[in-house]
């Protein structure tokens, strides 16, 4: 299922690789296993969408990749290096855009550069941020406060912030989950355009199967908690796909397979076999 792991220093096929991750959170009522044999392999420059039932450990997966926590067992590798802690080559965006209310949109986007590139001149930081804001259609809003923007615009700014420092790995934890359906589709297209222009490898956590097919090069289905990799689907659609692609029979077939897999993950029978 996962591509064979390549050793450090060699040509790296998989930029992100998680092998056999197991993890349990310690709670008052004993250990709560959340991951039980998670395997993920994301080739460089591609987009992996991860779907699964609610509470199955998808967010734990993002924290593993970001180096914010270590699994009890198993390995996490980024770019041929074992992940042991946070690294500057990661960008994150969440369902909540978590913009800093006291900063302008421009200064919000610049924030990661202040950590990652402390010596970068402000003029260059602004130029980089403006380039991204232009790409997501926020030119003219750089001087506004987050509270003056709509939910969709805030999420666009949050996406800019997550990639402003040119991360190798972009981790998206349901970034479109709280948006209305039309705004969400707009942002899918924005994400597709950013992908074409920027060099990141992405992991997208989502509850939306159409989103996973539209944005993903592969869709990884996780089982119910504790999560293991249940199913991996390669999305064989053109890279410059439009929303229309979701209405083709091919996409419909993929969505159908994914839906059945989610039902299995939820512990329910596939429809018709009650």
């Amino acid at each position: 299922m996962a591509a064979p792991f390549t050793t450090k220093g060699n040509s790296i096929e998989n930029l992100i690789e998680i092998k056999g991750a197991r993890h349990a959170y310690q709670t008052a009522s004993g250990p709560l296993p959340v991951l039980d044999g998670l395997d993920v392999a994301v080739p460089s420059g591609t987009f992996a969408a991860v779907v699964g039932p609610s509470g199955c450990g998808k967010s734990t997966l993002t924290r593993l990749v970001a180096g914010l926590m270590k699994p009890d067992e198993g390995e996490v590798w980024l770019h041929g290096e074992r992940v042991t802690g946070p690294r500057k080559t990661v960008g994150m965006a969440f369902q909540n855009p978590v913009l800093l209310e006291w900063r302008t949109i421009l200064d919000n986007v610049i924030l990661p550069l202040e950590i990652v590139a402390p010596t970068m001149p402000r003029k260059d930081r602004i130029a980089r941020a403006m380039e991204l804001l232009d790409m997501v259609g926020l030119t003219g809003f750089e001087g506004k406060r987050p509270s003056e923007l709509s939910g969709g615009m805030r999420q666009r700014a949050s996406l800019c912030r997550s990639i402003v420092h040119k991360p190798e790995v972009l981790i998206l934890d349901e970034p479109f989950g709280a948006l209305d359906a039309f705004t969400r589709e707009d942002l899918w297209q924005t994400m597709r355009d950013l992908r074409a222009a920027e060099p990141f490898t992405a992991v997208l956590i989502t509850h939306d199967l159409r989103e996973s097919v539209f944005l993903g090069d592969q869709v990884i289905v996780l089982s119910g908690r504790p999560a293991r990799t249940q199913y991996v689907m390669d999305v064989d659609l053109p890279a410059d796909r439009t929303l229309d692609v979701l209405f083709t029979p091919k996409a419909a077939d993929m969505l159908h397979v994914l839906r059945d897999q989610i039902k299995i993950a939820q512990g329910r029978d596939v429809e018709g076999q009650a």
């Binding site: 924290r63 970001a66 180096g67 914010l68 802690g85 946070p86 690294r87 500057k88 990661v90 960008g91 994150m92 969440f94 909540n96 978590v98 800093l100 209310e101 006291w102 924030l111 990661p112 202040e114 950590i115 990652v116 912030r161 420092h165 981790i171």
Partner: peptide, 25 residues
């Protein structure tokens, strides 16, 4: 926690997170 994570994932120190996010917030 997301506020902390956006900087922590970049390897920012606790003090930086306090100064740039927790304090003004």
């Amino acid at each position: 926690p997301e506020y902390r994570d956006i900087l922590r994932a970049l390897g920012a120190s606790k003090f930086t997170i306090f100064r740039k996010i927790a304090l003004p917030k």
